[in-house]
Structure formats: C-alpha cells, structure tokens
C-alpha cells in the first residue's frame, strides 16, 4: 500500500457529490479518471481523507452542442472526446490537442474536467481552453457559477475552485462559420506522452481572400499557467499571416511570459522556444487553413 488511508465514496448523483464536499470541510477530493490523482496519492503528494468517485454520476458525462458552444461535461473521458465527431467538427483545436494528452491507456480513463481541475500548467487541455477562452461551470450546495478559464487557472496545480465546488462542465466556443480553419498543437517534451516542457496551441481562420479573420493563440510552459496571446492575435488579425509579420508579432508574446528555470530547461530557453514555436505553429496553421480552402474549392467545382 502506498497511498495514505482514506474513505471512499461512490456518488450516484451530483447532489450527493456536493453534499459530501460540503460536509467534508475541505478534506474531500473528487476522483474522476484518477490518472494524475492516484499517482500523486501513491507518492503522498496528495492525502485526501475522503475520495468521492464521480465515475457513476451520469449527469457529469457527455458532450452537447448549440450553435455557438460545445459543452463537455467534466467526467467525459479524453478517449471519448478524441472519438467525438462533434469535437472533430466544432472544436478542431481540442481534437488536435487530445492525442498529445498522456497515452491511449491513460486517455481511456482520464477525463476532460479532471485534467483541468488538476491544474497541471503544461496540460494540453488547459492550454487549448486558454487559447479558445473556454468557460467552466462550478457547482456547490450554494449554487452554480461560471468562470472564464483565465480566472479558473491560478497557478501550478492551483485553480479557483473552492474546496466545496465540483467542476461540472466546460464550454468551448465554436469557431466562426464561413472561414477556413487551420489548427496546430505543438510541444516539446523529453519523450512522447511525457509532460510538455513548452507547448503552443494555434487556431487560424482565413476568409476567401486568405485574410486572417479569426486567431486564437496560447502558450504553456513559460508561465505559471498557460497564457492566451492577445497582443499577438491583435497584431495579426486582418493580415495574410506572412512570415515576416508572424515573426514580428510572435515577439509580442515575450512580455506576457514569466518562465522559471528547472531541471528540464532554463527560463531563457523556455522564453525563446515559446516565441519561436508560436511563430512556426501560426504559419503551419495558416498553411493548413489554405489547404482546406483549396480542397473545398476543388470539391465545389467537381
């Protein structure tokens, strides 16, 4: 036995989850897929007194969509999201990010909400949520509140969720219609499936003339939580994303970064790589968007 002793409770409803959280006075943790939490408990980096298993709460799993937003309930498995046709069509950036998350055996158990609630600063789902300005919904016995993802992720392994709150769903905005969309999620890591040292997520939307009308950018690994690159987006909207413009604009990411040195990489390296990778990823996403629009045009003609 490696984990410290705890009480285990299998919840059947959200009300039950919230009631246990409320009674536990901060000593309870929720377990979904457990792909980070069980290892942390084994290393005694986490020692909850009560573990609330939400895997059997039906209301916490599933994917829904409206015209503007895709809602992913927190306990939806990463592997299910990876296979979802809704996500492939409407949140292409998340579809591009998911294959980078752990490996298939961990994605079969790990959940979308679990990854966000865990708050790993280099997690690809958090990176994507930050790029797309997703919104999270938190529930407690006091009620429900919605938070922008930028207000949810506070620091490494730190979120704005209170001890008695349960993350119930994540809302991802759908890219605007009528644009050709290209996405890239890129990262460097010591080995495949390992934690990323630096990561970037890019979603580009081009109009028929090849002008960038939609741009969503974020970088991780060079700040306590991933940052969305608003100034870079603002500088490039309305351009054709030419190489010189992209290289210049990507440098506007630099002042947003606050990297720390660790055993894997120095702060200076993380800073340089984040800016360089962002520029490269924007160009690749632009090329993918151009390819898509050309293929669509060919399809229209035949």
């Amino acid at each position: 036995m490696k984990a410290a002793v705890f009480d285990y409770s299998r919840a059947e409803s959200l009300d039950e989850v919230l009631a246990i959280l409320s009674d536990a006075g901060g000593e309870a943790r929720i377990i979904a897929g457990g792909q980070s939490l069980v290892a942390m408990m084994a290393m005694r980096l986490a020692r909850p007194e009560i573990l609330i298993d939400i895997n059997h709460v039906e209301a916490l799993a599933g994917i829904g969509t409206t015209s503007a937003v895709v809602t992913i309930r927190a306990c939806t498995r990463q592997a299910a999201a990876e296979k979802s046709v809704v996500i492939a069509a409407d949140i292409p950036l998340l579809a591009a990010a998911l294959p980078h998350v752990g490996h298939i055996q961990t994605r079969n158990r790990g959940t979308i909400g679990g990854s966000l609630a865990h708050g790993d600063p280099t997690a690809e789902i958090l990176l994507t949520a930050m790029a797309l300005r997703a919104e999270v919904v938190l529930a407690s016995t006091h009620g429900i509140r919605n938070l922008q993802i930028a207000d949810f992720g506070l620091g490494p392994m730190q979120t704005a969720a209170a001890d008695d709150e349960c993350l119930t769903e994540i809302r991802f905005p759908i890219p605007p219609l009528g644009l050709s969309i290209g996405t890239v999620v890129d990262e460097i890591s010591p080995k495949a499936g390992d934690y990323a040292v630096v990561g970037v997520a890019v979603e580009v939307g081009l109009d028929d003339a090849g002008i960038c009308r939609h741009l969503r950018l974020a970088a991780s690994g060079a700040s306590p939580v991933p940052v969305s690159a608003n100034p870079v987006e603002a500088a490039l909207l309305g351009s054709t994303l030419g190489s010189a413009d992209v290289a210049g604009a990507a440098r506007l990411l630099d002042p947003l970064l606050d990297p720390e040195s660790d055993v894997q990489a120095s702060a200076a390296y993380r800073r340089r790589v984040a800016v360089g990778m962002l520029a490269r990823a924007i160009e690749l996403a632009r090329d993918r968007a151009l390819d898509r629009s050309q293929n669509q045009t060919k399809g229209d003609l035949t």
Partner: peptide, 23 residues
C-alpha cells in the same frame, strides 16, 4: 507504478487501462 511504463495494462470493460493507476 505511475502510469508511465504500461507493464500493468489490463482491459477494463474491453478498454486498455493501467491497473497501477486505478483503485
């Protein structure tokens, strides 16, 4: 013991999973 190596993979309801990272 930390879901990296895969020596513990079993099938749970037909899906591969790491049995060292499940209760």
């Amino acid at each position: 013991d930390t879901s990296q190596c895969g020596a513990c993979v079993v099938h749970v309801d037909g899906e591969s999973a790491k049995s060292c990272t499940m209760l």
